[in-house]
Design a binder for these strands. Sequence first.
DNA 1: GAAAATAGTTGAACAAGTTCAACTTGATAA
DNA 2: TTATCAAGTTGAACTTGTTCAACTATTTTC
Lengths: 190, 190
Amino acid sequence: MINDLLKQNIKKNAQLSNSELEEICKHFYPESIKKKDFLLTQGELCKFEGFVLEGCFRIFTIDKKGNENTLYFAAKDWWLMDIDSFMNQTPSNLNIQALEDSKVLLINRTDKLALYESVPIVEKLFRVMSQKALVAWQRRLIRNHCETAKERYHYFATTYPNIASKLTDKQIASYLGITHEFLSKIKKQS
Amino acid sequence: MINDLLKQNIKKNAQLSNSELEEICKHFYPESIKKKDFLLTQGELCKFEGFVLEGCFRIFTIDKKGNENTLYFAAKDWWLMDIDSFMNQTPSNLNIQALEDSKVLLINRTDKLALYESVPIVEKLFRVMSQKALVAWQRRLIRNHCETAKERYHYFATTYPNIASKLTDKQIASYLGITHEFLSKIKKQS
DNA sequence: GAAAATAGTTGAACAAGTTCAACTTGATAA
DNA sequence: TTATCAAGTTGAACTTGTTCAACTATTTTC
């Protein structure tokens, strides 16, 4: 079943019945995204939340100086969206691009908002998911402040080896917040 | 009423009845913290969540190199906790210190977990609060990557003037992720 | 109200990271 | 299969931010 991975993922964050699980999952629809294609581009409204079945995505922004800055990567079994644009329905500052041919399950914003009402445990599900994400963001900010680029690179490469292996050094550098030239020099050192 | 500020804050994030509001608020108890005293120190388990009624707190960590790194400040009408330690019940890496004589309302972890069950709308309340916080953390990370220390300083000083005015430059520097010597040089420039 | 501790300033030498440009290597597409 | 384009490497000059130390100003404490 195409929804199996999604169901397993949801079960990690909330205990729910099979009927609740069905009721939630039936609103997700599959989409295939070709390598280099975009699920969202800067300026659009984010009208969906997505779950990655296959492949890998990069969520990044391009700042005024023209530099790409990667917020995060989403591989198989990860969620993805621009939560800022989704919540506030303001134009997105983010691009969501497939790094390889990929498959996602999407839920429309209106369907998701309706689910909060019709299946109350969905509140708990996303409350728990959001809190876990919050912990991850706080930890990352502390690492950014306390560690050098070299330490951050090694942390990333060893913590997420299967994601790192799919990425170019340019993409990794834009996630670490350094130039790709400097990453090249870091890698040479050790 | 001592709980008024808390009630107003909660109402911003979820629509709830007066009885629900009462049921939630009755689990909060007031605590006074003297300037420089700690609500939590590194190594302890975080067993509470707090809401600031008066004063101001700094939430920071001390890394292996001995540097203080400020995660955030919590002034009147802000929430505060170590969400990582609270959720996972692992020893905290954070210190929560009062910057001036302060008053908070606290709820114990067990009471909060029970509230999720007994007052279902509490799930929505903290789901919404967590998602808003997530947006703020993502924006901050992007700013840290895209902007120079000088830009980040001016953003902070103009966005949170009433918090900034309570802080020493050393505390602001530890929030921006720079040394206080460098902040001093930045301020001289403009 | 004096002594002690903490905060802020400044300068010089240094380290971390950037920029630009030139080059090499590898991937892609006609 | 060659031409093209993107990715990675390297070096030199540069900018941003750090470190350390010495000093001044401001709070805190007894």
